[in-house]
């Protein structure tokens, strides 16, 4: 199964449950009392997920490791390499 099909099947399964609740196919006192919440729950879910995504991405952006030391090490090695290769007669 492709990832697209996985997404479609999970989404339609969840939506089917939601529709049956909203459409009144399932009768229960609890459902009736919380109908307003059930109606807007997909929107709430999308907003919460969006907030989660933005938080994670921003957090990872700010904590993205700046390899200062690696850059310093590389620059030193480049100088060393140039000198060594020059001594060995390489011209470029």
């Amino acid at each position: 199964m492709t990832k697209l099909l996985e997404w479609i099947s999970v989404t339609s399964a969840v939506l089917a449950v939601w529709c049956s609740l909203v459409g009144g196919y399932v009768k229960h006192k609890f459902i009736d009392e919380n109908m307003n919440f059930i109606l807007v729950s997909p929107i709430i879910f999308v907003i919460l997920f969006g907030l989660y995504a933005v938080t994670v991405v921003l957090y990872r952006t700010f904590t993205f490791n700046n390899c200062e030391e690696a850059a310093i090490q590389l620059k030193a090695e480049i100088l060393e390499a140039k000198k060594d290769l020059h001594d060995k007669g390489l011209r470029w």
């Binding site: 952006t61 993205f64 700046n66 390899c67 690696a70 850059a71």
Partner: peptide, 15 residues
């Protein structure tokens, strides 16, 4: 792991 030489925008797009 990490990167050197990327500005905020580049990191944000990457992440």
């Amino acid at each position: 792991g990490g990167v050197y030489g990327w500005d905020f925008k580049r990191k944000l797009i990457s992440r």
